[in-house]
Write a protein that binds this DNA or RNA. Structure first.
Length: 633
DNA sequence: ACGGTTAATACG
DNA sequence: TCGTATTAA
């Protein structure tokens, strides 16, 4: 249910930018022959030509709809080009679209706060940029109003008289406009510039809405498509909303919207205006009631979050009809594939963005084989996420078995799974260089950046599972060729200093059984310390043979997996080390901890599970406070 | 037993 | 907190 947010006092300038038939544009860029042609993107085309997930505007003219199958599309538009979504591991692979999406974010995040709302949409808070523009080069003084901006659609502006662009230019430059409208004008110009930049740098067109809040911006971003933008002056809001069908409002496209229509006879947003806030609260609860009352008046306080990356990663697949999975082996084989993809994705998130996911969740849809009875839901299950493909696969299978157990209850009946998905959530940034353990290991005056810290397991298994943390210590770790190259760059380090550094860093953290997370060391990652499994959450597996052990038994986790700080990590300055090893704090030998200075000991103890019914105060420690998500008001 | 896949949010 | 439900693109 939606909830109203307190709205800021000052007028804001908010934009919603939305790519035009995004997947199609991505494919058209990959294959320019498709440009200007009726085109659709389909996934899995063996059944009825596949399902359409994006349709070009040329194809829409023929009546091709997103809900169609490839075969249908061919019927109404024989000349249509159907491009398939890439397939990996026998499932749709959306990576090309994801990375195209980040191209946009990279461009759009250059002017003000930017929120990645989906793979192809962003919100921008341009308030500051607009204010600045108003001070320095207000539109009324601008000799040449940016051409793209004059193509804007201005809500409430009479469109039937004279040259449209002239009247838009006149509106944008109006000297007698009120402050709010002037800000919007600046916003419109900035967005126009950004959209041109997006086109120039990515070859993608987009549409946008510019308004005083997210709701209105989103509402109009799709109003004039493709490749156009629409502005909502305050003065136009009421007229615009009164006649707007209730279902067009974000959040009202589903059951809530239907209920408004069916139960209260509310067909348009205007119809909502006649209901007192208290009435709406009676029907839908305090939160939703207030929210409804406000949105009917164009009021929405939602802030644009400063977030360029997704909050979770998931992958799944459906197994419709005859494809349903009917035994553990087929579930396992699919689950393994899904987990492989998920593992790859969180691993690259770690490498590229220094973020760690903490929770693994499994969802499934199931029906019971023999009885065609209750459509009972397959429960979703989650557990701490341990890094490493094998670990994720193991854990996901366990989650499935647990879910299946709950699903079946005591009955001993056949079952079938019609969809499976795994996701990784609760993703946190790794604060770099802030941990005292890191400072201890590195020394207070170390010139070595966190990215340079070398933490390695001996590559020779016969050396056992002792873990060493060492700055490029050759006797202990045979460096990769790339490491050797990088090492040259550091040769100017003071020799004396380096020797000292090595002494300290090569302090053996022995017998940790290879399972502590160095990231835990580096970042004190987990505020989640209440259960044993969670301490495992950052464990990685060794690139070598996966242990087939019980995931719950930490002592059997003898492996750790590196992540590559060199690859695709431009910010990593001079990255001397090739990898960071993860191991499990829980498994640190207490004797080793005792050798550490008291403040480090305290820090480590802070990571380790508190007594059973400890208060939530453990979360207030300086360590875990790094990990509190940014508070929103 | 078909639009599939991926996300985000709110509630209890 | 987890698990569910709703919504959206």
């Amino acid at each position: 249910m939606p909830v109203a947010r307190p709205e800021p006092q000052e007028p804001r300038v908010i934009a919603h930018v939305d790519m035009d038939c995004f997947y199609v544009q991505v494919e058209q860029r990959r294959n320019p022959a498709l440009r200007g042609q009726p085109t659709a993107v389909v996934q899995y085309n063996d059944w009825k030509g596949g399902g359409l997930i994006a349709v070009s505007y040329e194809a829409r003219k023929f009546g091709v709809k997103r809900s169609m199958r490839g075969d249908e599309a061919k019927m109404v538009c024989p000349s249509i080009n159907l491009v398939q979504v890439p397939v990996a591991r026998d499932k749709a692979d959306l990576n090309v679209y994801r990375s195209a999406g980040s191209e946009l974010v990279a461009i759009l995040s250059t002017k003000g706060k930017c929120e990645r709302a989906s793979i192809d949409e962003v919100y921008l808070d341009l308030t500051d940029a607009a204010k600045e523009m108003l001070l320095e080069s207000p539109p009324e003084l601008l000799e040449l109003i940016f051409e793209e901006a004059t193509k804007s659609n201005i809500l409430g502006l009479p469109s039937d008289i004279g040259n449209r662009e002239d009247s838009v230019r006149a509106w944008l430059c109006r000297a007698d406009a009120d402050y709010q409208d002037k800000l919007l004008s600046c916003g419109a110009i900035i967005v126009a510039q950004l959209r041109v930049k997006v086109l120039e740098e990515t070859e993608f067109t987009c549409s946008a809405g510019i308004a005083h809040n997210k709701m209105l911006a989103k509402l109009v971003s799709g109003m004039h498509k493709p490749a156009q933008q629409t502005v909502v002056p305050s003065s136009a809001v009421q007229d615009f909303l009164v006649s707007l069908p209730i279902k067009k409002m974000k959040q009202l496209g589903g059951k809530l919207g239907s209920s408004l229509q069916d139960d209260l006879g509310v067909k348009t947003v205007g119809d909502l205006l006649s209901f007192a806030e208290e009435k709406l609260q009676e029907y839908y609860g305090v939160n939703t009631g207030t929210w409804l009352w406000k949105i009917a008046r164009g009021i929405s306080g939602e802030e644009v979050e400063d977030r360029l990356l997704p909050k979770s990663h998931g992958c799944g697949k459906t197994f419709p009809g005859p494809k349903a999975l009917r035994n553990n082996a087929s579930v396992k084989s699919w689950l393994d594939r899904l987990c492989e993809e998920l593992s790859e994705r969180i691993q690259s998130d770690l490498n590229q963005n220094k973020r760690i996911a903490q929770t693994l969740t499994l969802h499934a849809r199931a029906s019971k084989g023999n009885e065609c009875d209750s459509i009972k839901k397959f429960p979703s299950k989650s557990c701490p996420l341990r890094y490493g493909t094998g670990k994720i696969q193991e854990d996901a299978m366990k989650l499935f078995e647990s879910g299946l157990h709950d699903f079946l209850g005591s009955q001993n009946t056949k079952w079938s799974i019609t969809s499976l998905s795994v996701s990784a959530s609760k993703i946190f940034d790794i604060p770099s260089g802030t941990s005292s353990i890191l400072r201890y290991i590195k020394g207070p005056n170390s010139t070595v950046s966190p990215a340079n810290l070398d933490c390695s397991l001996p590559q020779d298994p016969s050396l056992g599972n002792k873990l060493y943390i060492t700055p490029n210590h050759e006797e202990q770790c045979e460096p990769s060729s790339s490491e050797k190259e990088d090492r040259g760059k550091n040769s100017n380090l003071d020799k004396q200093h380096q020797v000292k550094e090595e002494k300290r860093m090569s302090k053996k953290l022995t017998d940790v059984k290879g399972t502590c997370s160095i990231l835990k060391f580096l970042s004190q990652s987990s505020p989640v310390v209440n259960e044993k499994r969670k301490l495992d959450s950052l464990t990685c597996s060794h690139p070598g043979p996966e242990s087939s052990s019980e995931p719950n038994k930490a002592e059997e986790h003898k492996s750790a997996q590196p992540f590559d700080r060199n690859k695709s990590n431009p910010s990593g300055s001079n990255s001397a080390s090739s990898s960071t090893w993860m191991f499990n704090v829980e498994d640190i030998d207490p004797a080793v901890v005792e050798e550490l200075p008291p403040e480090i000991q305290r820090e480590i103890h802070g990571w380790i599970r508190p007594p059973k019914h400890s208060s939530s105060k453990t979360r207030g420690s300086t360590i875990s406070s790094y990990f509190q998500p940014a508070k929103r008001s």
